[in-house]
Design a binder for these strands. Structure first.
Lengths: 244, 244
DNA sequence: CGGGCGCTTGAGGCAGCTCAAGTCGTGTGG
DNA sequence: CCACACGACTTGAGCTGCCTCAAGCGCCCG
C-alpha cells in the first residue's frame, strides 16, 4: 500500500511503466471500463509486483489465500500433487490472465503455482478487491465473469479429456495456445512453448513420448512445423477441425 | 414475483413447503447466514419452481442466460456435444447444488442440462440476484464462493482424468457421490445412482463395459456391493484410499 | 568443448476399447 | 394382473492405441 504511494509520486520515472496505466495487458487482466480515476484505484489493489525466475513459486498448496495474481508477462503452471507424490498439472497461465480464483472458496490455495520462465505478476489483495468492489461494482462483476470463464475452460478441458484421442488432445492444446498467446503478435503464427513435453503430457494425460510422436505426425500432415519449443502453426483451420 | 406474494399470503397451505423457509436444502443452495427477513428477499429471487420429468431439459446450449438454478430435489446432468454429434457429460448435479454458473461469463448457456429423474429446481433470475446483492452483500460473496468451489471441483476432476486408471476413476466417482449424496441419510451407506453406466463412462472417459467391469472388481475386493443402481459402500476408507 | 537435459524414435506389452452374446429388471399394453 | 419387449447391465474374446523401457540425437549452458 505504501509502495503504491511511492510510485504515484514518481510520475516520470521509468519505473512507472510497471503501473497499471501503462500495463499492456491491463485490458486483459481486469478489463472493466476503467477511466483514469478508476485505474488509480486498481493501482491501489496491487500490493506487489514480484519478478519470478524460472522455477520460483508464486504460492504453494495449503497457504492462506490473500491475493489474486494478474500475470503481466511470462508463464505460470498450476499443479497439485497426487498421493504418490507425482505432480499433476491443472493449467498453464499466460500474460493477461488471473490466477488464484480457485482459492476464494475455502480461503486457501488448492494448488501450487510456479513460473515456467521469467515472469512478472501483479499481486492484488483480495480483501482490498472486496472492499473496493463496493465503490466500483464493475470490478466484482469482472471477477465473476472471469471465474465463470475459468469454469467454462475447465469444463471444455474435461470434455476434451473424456472423449479425445492423443492426436486430438495435442491439436486442441496447440489451438488453445494459439488463441491465448497470439493476441499480441497476430502476424506470425508461431508459438513458443514455455513448457516441456513432459509437462504437456502430464497436463493432457499422455506420456511425453506420445506428445512427441503426435506432434511429429501433425508435422507429417503439414499442419504444424516443430522446431524444438517453436511450433509454427501452418494450417490453423485443420488444427481447429481436430478440436472436436 | 407476484407468485411470491401469493405464497406469502397462504402461510398454512401445504404448498408453502415449496418456499425457501421450509426448503430442506436452503442451507446448501445459498448458505448465507440468512435471517428470516433475508429469506423473504431470497424468496423474491425465485421466479419459478419447475418440476421436471426424467429427460426434460432445464436449458440448452446457446440459450440466453437468465437464471441460475438451485436443485431442490432430484438429479441433473450437464453436457455439451462433440462435433461428431455425441454428447459429452461435464457434470452431475444433485439436491442443494447450483447450476448455470458457467453461463455468467458470456451471458449464454454453454452446455445442456437435463433431468436424470423427477427433479424440482428453483429458478433465480440473475439480474435480480445482481440487484439484491447490493442489499445483501453476503449473497454476492456466496455466489463467488460457489463458483470458486466449482473451479476447484473441475480441476480436481481434471487431475483425476489425467492421472488415474479406470478402477481409480470409478472409485473416485463413487466416493465423490458419497460425499455429495449422503448428507441427508448418513446412517445408510448406500447410494442410488440416478444415471446409467453409459453416462458414468461418458463422464469418466471410459466405456460402459469398463465401468461395469471395474465396479465388479471393486465388489470382488469387498469395497462395494453392486445391486443394479444401488451401490452399497462397504469400505469407505478403502474407497478414499483409491482416490489419489 | 563437454555434460546434461530435453527431445525423438523404435520395440514390446498391457489396459481399456470394440464387438458380441446372454441375463435381468422395468415398464407397458393387452 | 400377466406377458412381452426393450433398455440396462454383465461378462467374454480379440484388437489397438498408448505406455513403458531403451537407445540415440541435439541443443543449451557452463
Amino acid at each position: 500500500m505504501s509502495l503504491t504511494k511511492k510510485i504515484d509520486s514518481r510520475v516520470i520515472s521509468i519505473k512507472d511503466f510497471s503501473s497499471c496505466s501503462y500495463c499492456s495487458v491491463r485490458r486483459l487482466c481486469l478489463p472493466v471500463s476503467v477511466e483514469k480515476e478508476e485505474v488509480s484505484i486498481i493501482e491501489e489493489l496491487v500490493s506487489d509486483r514480484p519478478q519470478l525466475k524460472k522455477g520460483e513459486y508464486l504460492f504453494h498448496v495449503g497457504e492462506k489465500f490473500q491475493s489474486l495474481f494478474a500475470i503481466k508477462s511470462g508463464a505460470v503452471k498450476t499443479f497439485g500433487s497426487t498421493r504418490d507424490g507425482r505432480e499433476q498439472i491443472t493449467g498453464f497461465h499466460f500474460a493477461g490472465e488471473l490466477i488464484g480464483l480457485d482459492a476464494i472458496g475455502n480461503n486457501m490455495h488448492n494448488c501450487n503455482a510456479v513460473a515456467l520462465e521469467k515472469t512478472v505478476v501483479c499481486a492484488m489483495s483480495y480483501d482490498d478487491i472486496e472492499g473496493i468492489s463496493t465503490q466500483i461494482p464493475s470490478i466484482q462483476h469482472e471477477i465473476t465473469r472471469l471465474m465463470s470463464k475459468e469454469i467454462r475452460n475447465d469444463e471444455e478441458m474435461l470434455m476434451a479429456m473424456g472423449s479425445m484421442r492423443a492426436e486430438q488432445r495435442v491439436a486442441c492444446f496447440l489451438f488453445n495456445l494459439y488463441r491465448r498467446l497470439l493476441s499480441g503478435n497476430k502476424e506470425t503464427l508461431t508459438v513458443r512453448l514455455p513448457m516441456t513435453r513432459e509437462e504437456i503430457g502430464n497436463y493432457l494425460g499422455l506420456s511425453l513420448e506420445t506428445v512427441s510422436r503426435r506432434m511429429s505426425s501433425l508435422q507429417d500432415d503439414g499442419i504444424i512445423n516443430v522446431n524444438n519449443r517453436l511450433i509454427a502453426l501452418l494450417d490453423i483451420d485443420a488444427l481447429e477441425k481436430l478440436c472436436v
